[in-house]
Write a protein that binds this DNA or RNA. Sequence first.
DNA 1: GGTGCAGTTCAAGCGGTCTTGAACTATATG
DNA 2: CATATAGTTCAAGACCGCTTGAACTGCACC
Lengths: 198, 198
Amino acid sequence: MKGYLWTGGPGSSASEAPPADGRLAPWEAIAVDAVGNVIEFWGFKRNQGRVWALLYLRGEPLTAGEIERELDLSKGGVSMLLRDLERWGVIQRVRLPQDTVWRYGAENDLVRMVTHVIEEREAGFVARIRADLAEARRLAETQSGLPPDRLQRLEKMATLAEHVERALRLFIKTSRLDVSGVLSVFRDEATGARRGSK
Amino acid sequence: MKGYLWTGGPGSSASEAPPADGRLAPWEAIAVDAVGNVIEFWGFKRNQGRVWALLYLRGEPLTAGEIERELDLSKGGVSMLLRDLERWGVIQRVRLPQDTVWRYGAENDLVRMVTHVIEEREAGFVARIRADLAEARRLAETQSGLPPDRLQRLEKMATLAEHVERALRLFIKTSRLDVSGVLSVFRDEATGARRGSK
DNA sequence: GGTGCAGTTCAAGCGGTCTTGAACTATATG
DNA sequence: CATATAGTTCAAGACCGCTTGAACTGCACC
Protein backbone atom coordinates (compact mmCIF):
# COMPACT_ATOMS: atom_id res chain seq x y z
CA MET A 1 0.00 0.00 0.00
CA LYS A 2 1.81 2.97 -1.24
CA GLY A 3 1.28 6.26 -2.96
CA TYR A 4 0.37 4.57 -6.20
CA LEU A 5 -3.16 4.41 -4.99
CA TRP A 6 -3.37 8.07 -5.83
CA THR A 7 -1.33 8.37 -8.95
CA GLY A 8 -4.38 7.95 -11.10
CA GLY A 9 -5.83 11.25 -12.26
CA PRO A 10 -9.22 12.63 -11.27
CA GLY A 11 -11.02 10.00 -13.32
CA SER A 12 -12.50 6.90 -11.80
CA SER A 13 -9.89 4.25 -11.28
CA ALA A 14 -12.19 1.51 -12.46
CA SER A 15 -12.73 3.08 -15.84
CA GLU A 16 -9.02 2.61 -16.62
CA ALA A 17 -9.52 -1.11 -16.93
CA PRO A 18 -8.14 -2.38 -20.23
CA PRO A 19 -10.86 -3.36 -22.71
CA ALA A 20 -9.42 -6.81 -22.92
CA ASP A 21 -11.29 -10.08 -22.98
CA GLY A 22 -14.78 -11.21 -23.69
CA ARG A 23 -17.83 -11.29 -21.56
CA LEU A 24 -17.43 -9.24 -18.40
CA ALA A 25 -20.22 -6.67 -18.25
CA PRO A 26 -19.15 -3.05 -17.69
CA TRP A 27 -20.84 -2.78 -14.33
CA GLU A 28 -19.22 -5.99 -13.25
CA ALA A 29 -15.82 -4.76 -14.31
CA ILE A 30 -16.23 -1.63 -12.25
CA ALA A 31 -17.41 -3.43 -9.16
CA VAL A 32 -14.74 -6.09 -9.46
CA ASP A 33 -12.02 -3.49 -9.79
CA ALA A 34 -13.37 -1.53 -6.87
CA VAL A 35 -13.07 -4.56 -4.64
CA GLY A 36 -9.64 -5.20 -6.10
CA ASN A 37 -8.56 -1.72 -5.06
CA VAL A 38 -9.88 -2.12 -1.56
CA ILE A 39 -8.20 -5.43 -1.10
CA GLU A 40 -4.93 -4.10 -2.40
CA PHE A 41 -5.22 -1.19 -0.03
CA TRP A 42 -5.39 -3.65 2.84
CA GLY A 43 -2.17 -5.27 1.76
CA PHE A 44 -3.39 -8.17 -0.34
CA LYS A 45 -3.07 -8.71 -4.03
CA ARG A 46 -5.39 -6.75 -6.20
CA ASN A 47 -6.33 -9.82 -8.19
CA GLN A 48 -7.26 -11.76 -5.11
CA GLY A 49 -9.95 -9.20 -4.50
CA ARG A 50 -11.03 -9.22 -8.11
CA VAL A 51 -11.45 -12.97 -8.16
CA TRP A 52 -13.46 -13.00 -4.97
CA ALA A 53 -15.64 -10.14 -6.20
CA LEU A 54 -16.38 -11.90 -9.47
CA LEU A 55 -17.35 -15.10 -7.73
CA TYR A 56 -19.46 -13.25 -5.24
CA LEU A 57 -21.29 -11.21 -7.86
CA ARG A 58 -21.99 -14.19 -10.07
CA GLY A 59 -23.50 -16.11 -7.19
CA GLU A 60 -22.77 -19.47 -8.73
CA PRO A 61 -19.44 -21.31 -8.80
CA LEU A 62 -17.17 -20.73 -11.77
CA THR A 63 -14.35 -22.81 -13.19
CA ALA A 64 -10.75 -21.64 -13.23
CA GLY A 65 -10.96 -21.31 -16.99
CA GLU A 66 -13.94 -18.99 -16.78
CA ILE A 67 -12.23 -16.81 -14.23
CA GLU A 68 -9.17 -16.73 -16.42
CA ARG A 69 -11.17 -15.47 -19.37
CA GLU A 70 -13.41 -13.05 -17.51
CA LEU A 71 -10.63 -11.30 -15.66
CA ASP A 72 -8.00 -11.74 -18.34
CA LEU A 73 -5.52 -13.49 -16.09
CA SER A 74 -3.02 -16.22 -16.81
CA LYS A 75 -3.69 -19.86 -16.10
CA GLY A 76 -0.96 -20.10 -13.52
CA GLY A 77 -1.97 -16.90 -11.86
CA VAL A 78 -5.55 -18.04 -11.41
CA SER A 79 -4.36 -21.28 -9.89
CA MET A 80 -2.29 -19.50 -7.30
CA LEU A 81 -4.92 -16.90 -6.52
CA LEU A 82 -7.53 -19.59 -5.99
CA ARG A 83 -5.22 -21.52 -3.73
CA ASP A 84 -4.63 -18.47 -1.55
CA LEU A 85 -8.29 -17.62 -1.33
CA GLU A 86 -9.26 -21.17 -0.54
CA ARG A 87 -6.62 -21.43 2.16
CA TRP A 88 -8.04 -18.33 3.76
CA GLY A 89 -11.52 -19.72 3.57
CA VAL A 90 -13.03 -16.99 1.44
CA ILE A 91 -13.86 -19.24 -1.47
CA GLN A 92 -14.91 -22.84 -1.60
CA ARG A 93 -13.92 -25.50 -4.08
CA VAL A 94 -16.84 -27.66 -5.16
CA ARG A 95 -17.29 -30.48 -7.62
CA LEU A 96 -20.85 -30.66 -8.91
CA PRO A 97 -22.36 -34.16 -9.16
CA GLN A 98 -22.31 -34.95 -12.86
CA ASP A 99 -19.37 -32.69 -13.50
CA THR A 100 -15.70 -33.48 -13.89
CA VAL A 101 -14.15 -30.10 -13.21
CA TRP A 102 -13.65 -28.07 -10.04
CA ARG A 103 -15.71 -24.96 -9.53
CA TYR A 104 -15.13 -22.18 -7.07
CA GLY A 105 -17.77 -20.30 -5.13
CA ALA A 106 -17.45 -17.23 -2.95
CA GLU A 107 -17.90 -17.45 0.75
CA ASN A 108 -19.19 -14.32 2.38
CA ASP A 109 -16.65 -13.83 5.09
CA LEU A 110 -14.28 -11.67 3.10
CA VAL A 111 -14.48 -9.11 5.84
CA ARG A 112 -13.85 -11.65 8.50
CA MET A 113 -10.78 -12.73 6.63
CA VAL A 114 -9.51 -9.23 6.20
CA THR A 115 -9.93 -8.32 9.83
CA HIS A 116 -8.44 -11.61 10.84
CA VAL A 117 -5.37 -11.26 8.72
CA ILE A 118 -4.96 -7.65 9.63
CA GLU A 119 -5.30 -8.50 13.26
CA GLU A 120 -2.63 -11.14 13.02
CA ARG A 121 -0.32 -9.05 10.94
CA GLU A 122 -0.72 -5.97 13.03
CA ALA A 123 -0.31 -7.87 16.27
CA GLY A 124 2.92 -9.48 15.18
CA PHE A 125 4.22 -6.26 13.77
CA VAL A 126 3.42 -4.22 16.81
CA ALA A 127 4.91 -6.84 19.07
CA ARG A 128 8.14 -6.67 17.14
CA ILE A 129 8.30 -2.91 17.39
CA ARG A 130 7.71 -3.11 21.11
CA ALA A 131 10.40 -5.70 21.50
CA ASP A 132 12.84 -3.59 19.52
CA LEU A 133 12.15 -0.50 21.56
CA ALA A 134 12.47 -2.46 24.79
CA GLU A 135 15.78 -3.84 23.63
CA ALA A 136 16.98 -0.38 22.71
CA ARG A 137 16.03 0.84 26.15
CA ARG A 138 17.83 -2.01 27.83
CA LEU A 139 20.99 -1.28 25.88
CA ALA A 140 20.72 2.43 26.47
CA GLU A 141 20.41 1.95 30.22
CA THR A 142 23.67 0.06 30.43
CA GLN A 143 25.50 2.96 28.82
CA SER A 144 27.20 4.92 31.54
CA GLY A 145 27.72 8.44 30.25
CA LEU A 146 24.31 8.83 28.65
CA PRO A 147 22.50 12.14 29.18
CA PRO A 148 19.23 11.50 31.00
CA ASP A 149 17.10 13.45 28.52
CA ARG A 150 18.04 11.08 25.73
CA LEU A 151 16.83 8.10 27.68
CA GLN A 152 13.69 10.01 28.44
CA ARG A 153 12.96 10.57 24.79
CA LEU A 154 13.46 6.92 24.06
CA GLU A 155 10.98 6.05 26.77
CA LYS A 156 8.46 8.46 25.34
CA MET A 157 8.86 6.76 22.02
CA ALA A 158 7.97 3.45 23.61
CA THR A 159 4.97 4.98 25.34
CA LEU A 160 3.73 6.35 22.09
CA ALA A 161 4.08 2.97 20.44
CA GLU A 162 1.95 1.41 23.14
CA HIS A 163 -0.79 3.93 22.63
CA VAL A 164 -0.84 3.39 18.92
CA GLU A 165 -1.07 -0.29 19.62
CA ARG A 166 -4.07 0.18 21.86
CA ALA A 167 -5.77 2.30 19.25
CA LEU A 168 -5.18 -0.37 16.66
CA ARG A 169 -6.63 -3.12 18.77
CA LEU A 170 -9.66 -1.04 19.47
CA PHE A 171 -10.12 -0.39 15.80
CA ILE A 172 -10.05 -4.02 14.89
CA LYS A 173 -12.47 -4.94 17.60
CA THR A 174 -14.80 -2.13 16.67
CA SER A 175 -14.75 -2.75 12.98
CA ARG A 176 -15.49 -6.37 13.64
CA LEU A 177 -18.50 -5.58 15.72
CA ASP A 178 -19.63 -2.94 13.33
CA VAL A 179 -19.37 -5.19 10.38
CA SER A 180 -20.77 -8.35 11.88
CA GLY A 181 -24.29 -6.97 11.61
CA VAL A 182 -23.92 -6.48 7.91
CA LEU A 183 -22.24 -9.80 7.62
CA SER A 184 -25.16 -11.73 8.96
CA VAL A 185 -27.41 -10.18 6.37
CA PHE A 186 -24.87 -11.12 3.77
CA ARG A 187 -24.75 -14.66 4.90
CA ASP A 188 -28.48 -15.22 5.04
CA GLU A 189 -29.28 -13.98 1.61
CA ALA A 190 -26.26 -15.02 -0.32
CA THR A 191 -26.09 -18.67 0.64
CA GLY A 192 -29.76 -18.94 -0.04
CA ALA A 193 -29.29 -17.47 -3.46
CA ARG A 194 -26.45 -19.76 -4.29
CA ARG A 195 -28.27 -22.80 -3.15
CA GLY A 196 -31.32 -21.74 -5.13
CA SER A 197 -29.58 -21.11 -8.41
CA LYS A 198 -28.24 -23.83 -10.69
CA MET B 1 2.62 -1.85 3.21
CA LYS B 2 2.87 -5.33 2.00
CA GLY B 3 3.82 -8.79 3.06
CA TYR B 4 7.50 -7.98 3.02
CA LEU B 5 7.09 -6.73 6.51
CA TRP B 6 6.96 -10.36 7.50
CA THR B 7 9.47 -11.98 5.26
CA GLY B 8 12.20 -11.50 7.81
CA GLY B 9 12.81 -14.58 9.90
CA PRO B 10 12.05 -14.93 13.59
CA GLY B 11 14.88 -12.60 14.52
CA SER B 12 14.35 -8.97 15.37
CA SER B 13 14.11 -6.84 12.29
CA ALA B 14 16.25 -4.12 13.78
CA SER B 15 19.20 -6.39 14.29
CA GLU B 16 19.43 -6.97 10.55
CA ALA B 17 20.73 -3.47 10.03
CA PRO B 18 24.01 -3.54 8.13
CA PRO B 19 27.00 -2.70 10.32
CA ALA B 20 27.88 0.13 8.04
CA ASP B 21 29.08 3.56 9.01
CA GLY B 22 30.57 5.17 12.03
CA ARG B 23 29.06 6.54 15.15
CA LEU B 24 25.47 5.44 15.60
CA ALA B 25 25.15 3.69 18.96
CA PRO B 26 23.57 0.22 18.89
CA TRP B 27 20.55 1.24 20.90
CA GLU B 28 20.04 4.20 18.61
CA ALA B 29 20.23 2.01 15.56
CA ILE B 30 17.57 -0.28 16.93
CA ALA B 31 15.20 2.51 17.91
CA VAL B 32 15.74 4.34 14.64
CA ASP B 33 15.00 1.22 12.63
CA ALA B 34 11.94 0.46 14.70
CA VAL B 35 10.50 3.84 13.86
CA GLY B 36 11.50 3.30 10.26
CA ASN B 37 9.50 0.10 10.18
CA VAL B 38 6.44 1.72 11.69
CA ILE B 39 6.55 4.59 9.28
CA GLU B 40 6.96 2.27 6.35
CA PHE B 41 4.03 0.28 7.59
CA TRP B 42 1.90 3.40 7.41
CA GLY B 43 2.82 3.94 3.80
CA PHE B 44 5.74 6.33 4.04
CA LYS B 45 9.36 5.75 3.24
CA ARG B 46 11.33 3.83 5.76
CA ASN B 47 14.13 6.35 5.70
CA GLN B 48 11.79 9.22 6.41
CA GLY B 49 10.99 7.56 9.69
CA ARG B 50 14.62 6.83 10.40
CA VAL B 51 15.65 10.42 9.86
CA TRP B 52 12.91 11.75 12.09
CA ALA B 53 13.74 9.23 14.79
CA LEU B 54 17.40 10.14 14.77
CA LEU B 55 16.66 13.83 15.07
CA TYR B 56 14.15 13.22 17.79
CA LEU B 57 16.44 10.99 19.81
CA ARG B 58 19.40 13.33 19.54
CA GLY B 59 17.33 16.24 20.78
CA GLU B 60 19.50 18.83 19.10
CA PRO B 61 19.53 19.79 15.42
CA LEU B 62 21.88 17.95 13.10
CA THR B 63 23.32 18.91 9.74
CA ALA B 64 22.52 17.03 6.56
CA GLY B 65 26.06 15.72 6.50
CA GLU B 66 25.76 14.26 9.97
CA ILE B 67 22.52 12.54 9.09
CA GLU B 68 24.13 11.21 5.95
CA ARG B 69 26.94 9.66 7.94
CA GLU B 70 24.91 8.37 10.86
CA LEU B 71 22.29 6.64 8.78
CA ASP B 72 24.57 5.78 5.89
CA LEU B 73 22.46 7.47 3.26
CA SER B 74 23.44 9.29 0.10
CA LYS B 75 23.75 13.04 -0.10
CA GLY B 76 20.93 13.40 -2.55
CA GLY B 77 18.70 11.07 -0.63
CA VAL B 78 19.10 13.02 2.59
CA SER B 79 18.26 16.22 0.78
CA MET B 80 15.02 14.79 -0.54
CA LEU B 81 14.04 13.15 2.71
CA LEU B 82 14.59 16.37 4.63
CA ARG B 83 12.55 18.31 2.14
CA ASP B 84 9.62 15.92 2.53
CA LEU B 85 9.78 15.96 6.30
CA GLU B 86 10.04 19.72 6.42
CA ARG B 87 7.11 20.14 4.08
CA TRP B 88 5.02 17.99 6.36
CA GLY B 89 6.11 19.98 9.35
CA VAL B 90 7.67 17.14 11.28
CA ILE B 91 11.16 18.64 11.26
CA GLN B 92 12.32 22.21 11.35
CA ARG B 93 15.19 23.81 9.50
CA VAL B 94 17.18 26.19 11.67
CA ARG B 95 20.30 28.25 11.19
CA LEU B 96 22.13 28.85 14.45
CA PRO B 97 23.47 32.42 14.99
CA GLN B 98 27.18 32.10 14.39
CA ASP B 99 26.77 29.15 12.10
CA THR B 100 26.81 28.97 8.33
CA VAL B 101 25.08 25.67 7.73
CA TRP B 102 21.48 24.54 8.06
CA ARG B 103 20.54 22.23 10.85
CA TYR B 104 17.42 20.15 11.23
CA GLY B 105 15.52 19.49 14.42
CA ALA B 106 12.62 17.15 15.07
CA GLU B 107 9.20 18.47 15.78
CA ASN B 108 7.03 16.26 17.92
CA ASP B 109 3.93 16.01 15.83
CA LEU B 110 4.91 12.89 13.96
CA VAL B 111 1.70 11.29 15.07
CA ARG B 112 -0.36 14.24 14.08
CA MET B 113 1.21 14.04 10.67
CA VAL B 114 0.57 10.35 10.32
CA THR B 115 -3.06 10.54 11.32
CA HIS B 116 -3.52 13.55 9.11
CA VAL B 117 -2.09 11.93 6.05
CA ILE B 118 -3.91 8.70 6.72
CA GLU B 119 -7.14 10.56 7.16
CA GLU B 120 -6.73 12.35 3.88
CA ARG B 121 -5.63 9.31 2.01
CA GLU B 122 -8.31 7.09 3.40
CA ALA B 123 -11.04 9.62 2.82
CA GLY B 124 -10.18 10.08 -0.82
CA PHE B 125 -9.76 6.41 -1.34
CA VAL B 126 -13.02 5.44 0.25
CA ALA B 127 -14.84 8.13 -1.66
CA ARG B 128 -13.53 6.71 -4.91
CA ILE B 129 -14.62 3.20 -4.04
CA ARG B 130 -18.06 4.45 -3.17
CA ALA B 131 -18.32 6.33 -6.41
CA ASP B 132 -17.25 3.28 -8.36
CA LEU B 133 -19.79 1.06 -6.69
CA ALA B 134 -22.51 3.62 -7.22
CA GLU B 135 -21.60 3.83 -10.87
CA ALA B 136 -21.66 0.08 -11.18
CA ARG B 137 -25.08 0.03 -9.63
CA ARG B 138 -26.37 2.68 -11.98
CA LEU B 139 -25.13 0.75 -14.99
CA ALA B 140 -26.49 -2.50 -13.67
CA GLU B 141 -29.92 -1.03 -13.18
CA THR B 142 -30.21 0.01 -16.79
CA GLN B 143 -29.57 -3.55 -17.91
CA SER B 144 -32.88 -5.11 -18.75
CA GLY B 145 -32.49 -8.86 -18.42
CA LEU B 146 -30.52 -8.83 -15.21
CA PRO B 147 -31.47 -11.36 -12.53
CA PRO B 148 -32.59 -9.52 -9.39
CA ASP B 149 -30.32 -11.47 -7.07
CA ARG B 150 -27.26 -10.17 -8.84
CA LEU B 151 -28.29 -6.61 -8.31
CA GLN B 152 -28.97 -7.45 -4.72
CA ARG B 153 -25.46 -8.70 -4.20
CA LEU B 154 -24.03 -5.59 -5.73
CA GLU B 155 -26.05 -3.50 -3.33
CA LYS B 156 -24.82 -5.51 -0.40
CA MET B 157 -21.30 -4.85 -1.53
CA ALA B 158 -21.96 -1.14 -1.41
CA THR B 159 -23.49 -1.43 2.02
CA LEU B 160 -20.48 -3.26 3.26
CA ALA B 161 -18.19 -0.60 1.88
CA GLU B 162 -20.09 2.05 3.78
CA HIS B 163 -19.73 0.18 7.01
CA VAL B 164 -16.03 -0.27 6.55
CA GLU B 165 -15.81 3.42 5.89
CA ARG B 166 -17.59 4.23 9.12
CA ALA B 167 -15.29 1.95 11.04
CA LEU B 168 -12.29 3.66 9.51
CA ARG B 169 -13.44 7.11 10.42
CA LEU B 170 -14.09 6.00 13.94
CA PHE B 171 -10.63 4.55 14.16
CA ILE B 172 -8.93 7.71 13.04
CA LYS B 173 -10.95 9.84 15.42
CA THR B 174 -10.32 7.49 18.29
CA SER B 175 -6.63 7.10 17.71
CA ARG B 176 -6.29 10.83 17.53
CA LEU B 177 -8.01 11.34 20.83
CA ASP B 178 -6.16 8.48 22.39
CA VAL B 179 -2.83 9.74 21.26
CA SER B 180 -3.31 13.42 21.92
CA GLY B 181 -2.82 12.86 25.63
CA VAL B 182 0.56 11.35 25.05
CA LEU B 183 1.38 14.01 22.55
CA SER B 184 1.01 16.87 24.97
CA VAL B 185 3.49 15.27 27.33
CA PHE B 186 5.82 14.88 24.39
CA ARG B 187 5.59 18.47 23.46
CA ASP B 188 6.20 19.90 26.92
CA GLU B 189 9.31 17.98 27.71
CA ALA B 190 10.94 17.76 24.34
CA THR B 191 10.83 21.40 23.31
CA GLY B 192 12.16 22.31 26.69
CA ALA B 193 15.02 19.92 26.30
CA ARG B 194 15.91 21.17 22.88
CA ARG B 195 15.84 24.76 23.91
CA GLY B 196 18.03 23.98 26.89
CA SER B 197 20.74 22.11 25.05
CA LYS B 198 23.42 23.72 22.91
C1' DG C 1 -1.40 -47.38 -23.19
C1' DG C 2 -2.49 -43.00 -25.46
C1' DT C 3 -4.66 -38.61 -25.92
C1' DG C 4 -6.52 -34.43 -24.12
C1' DC C 5 -7.82 -31.31 -20.70
C1' DA C 6 -7.62 -29.40 -15.80
C1' DG C 7 -4.58 -27.93 -12.50
C1' DT C 8 0.19 -26.86 -10.36
C1' DT C 9 4.78 -25.12 -10.11
C1' DC C 10 8.46 -22.00 -10.84
C1' DA C 11 12.14 -19.48 -13.40
C1' DA C 12 12.22 -15.43 -16.09
C1' DG C 13 10.45 -10.94 -17.29
C1' DC C 14 7.82 -6.90 -16.24
C1' DG C 15 6.51 -2.89 -13.86
C1' DG C 16 6.76 -0.28 -9.93
C1' DT C 17 9.24 2.50 -6.29
C1' DC C 18 13.52 3.97 -3.84
C1' DT C 19 18.33 5.13 -3.85
C1' DT C 20 22.40 6.53 -5.80
C1' DG C 21 25.84 9.54 -7.66
C1' DA C 22 27.24 12.98 -10.69
C1' DA C 23 26.21 17.41 -12.60
C1' DC C 24 24.51 21.63 -11.26
C1' DT C 25 23.32 25.87 -8.29
C1' DA C 26 23.94 28.72 -4.24
C1' DT C 27 26.53 30.70 -0.69
C1' DA C 28 30.34 31.88 2.18
C1' DT C 29 35.37 33.02 2.39
C1' DG C 30 40.12 34.44 1.13
C1' DC D 1 37.01 36.64 -8.87
C1' DA D 2 38.43 32.03 -7.48
C1' DT D 3 37.69 28.37 -4.54
C1' DA D 4 35.42 25.35 -1.43
C1' DT D 5 31.66 23.57 0.77
C1' DA D 6 26.50 23.00 1.33
C1' DG D 7 22.47 21.84 -0.91
C1' DT D 8 19.35 20.40 -5.02
C1' DT D 9 17.94 17.89 -8.96
C1' DC D 10 17.25 14.02 -11.81
C1' DA D 11 18.47 10.18 -14.96
C1' DA D 12 20.24 5.60 -14.37
C1' DG D 13 20.08 1.63 -11.99
C1' DA D 14 19.10 -1.32 -7.86
C1' DC D 15 15.63 -3.66 -5.86
C1' DC D 16 11.40 -6.35 -5.14
C1' DG D 17 7.02 -8.33 -5.59
C1' DC D 18 3.57 -9.80 -9.16
C1' DT D 19 2.43 -12.01 -13.39
C1' DT D 20 3.34 -14.78 -17.14
C1' DG D 21 3.96 -18.86 -19.82
C1' DA D 22 5.96 -23.19 -20.49
C1' DA D 23 7.01 -27.55 -18.50
C1' DC D 24 5.09 -30.81 -15.56
C1' DT D 25 1.57 -33.73 -12.94
C1' DG D 26 -2.89 -35.85 -12.40
C1' DC D 27 -7.04 -37.64 -14.07
C1' DA D 28 -10.70 -39.09 -17.21
C1' DC D 29 -12.03 -41.16 -21.28
C1' DC D 30 -11.19 -43.77 -25.62
